[in-house]
Write a protein that binds this DNA or RNA. Structure first.
Lengths: 140, 140
DNA sequence: TCCGAGATTTGGACTTTGTCAAAAAGAATG
DNA sequence: CATTCTTTTTGACAAAGTCCAAATCTCGGA
């Protein structure tokens, strides 16, 4: 995120300390939960209400400034990196999440064969597996 | 589901009225939530505890008898149809969920290019869009 | 610079979805 | 049929979010 303040103004959002701090926290911690971000923001501002974190995250997500991903059995995660149609790799045992580039090139995973008349706007892909660390733990 | 009772016995699970009823309910209502299924089972048995529904669904899911899908902003959904690696199409506005065949053939969507050392065991794909009914509603 | 309208932040109650634990009830083997 | 082990039930609890009203803040105009 180049300039959080400019980003907010571009989207006609009033600039507040909470918004700047949340935006920076998302930048610093990709794939963090609302709780993680709250902790991070508190380190910066001293305090922020839980509700404000949710407000800000919702507004930023609606505006397309950040992206929300919601893997099964996990709270929502937020990330900075948008517009490149990347996907995610999630560890079943520890929840660790990594980015992966779109597996099939540009954005062709957007095409479902039989679409039942739906107008599809996104193909969300989550690869489930075991991360290197947890693989080692299991063997030992 | 050919024979719910036989299915349970095959997996060494004691046969109970609750399990049979839940299994039948999942068969009858693909993509139903635990709540939906509770209602459906109550219609059949007269009553069932909320916890039992969760117990049964968890056990059946663990054994691979049914499959659980957890789209964002929705309670978990359960389905009968397993082992064919199909994916799902979810309406953003009403939540309606449809099956779609694997977009890329057999099960090759299992391959992520850079896998960061993860051992991948499943690629979950959710197509997000608007169902025919909601498309009409929006236009009017 | 100061004001005021409108948006944001806060705190607290509430909802939803699901799990935990202990006691009562039920299934299946011999 | 009796015993043992598993399920079911009940009720409390937890996590993640949302709703609402009051207090506060931002920003454009005077």
């Amino acid at each position: 995120m180049r300039d959080p303040e400019a980003t907010l103004r571009q989207h006609a959002l009033p600039v507040t300390a909470q918004r700047l701090a949340v935006l920076r926290a998302v930048s610093r911690h990709p794939h963090a939960t609302a709780d993680d971000l709250t902790a991070s923001v508190c380190g910066e501002l001293g305090t922020i209400s839980r509700q404000s974190v949710y407000n800000v995250l919702n507004v930023l997500t609606d505006k397309g400034i950040i992206r929300r991903i919601q893997p099964a059995d996990s709270a929502a995660l937020y990330e900075d990196r948008i517009g490149d149609n990347h996907h995610h790799l999630v560890c079943r045992s520890c929840g660790k999440t990594e980015d992966v580039c779109c597996a099939v090139g540009e954005a062709p995973c957007l095409t479902a064969h039989s679409h039942h008349g739906f107008k599809i706007d996104e193909a969300e892909v989550i690869y489930w597996g075991t991360c290197p660390t947890c693989q080692k733990k299991k063997r030992s």
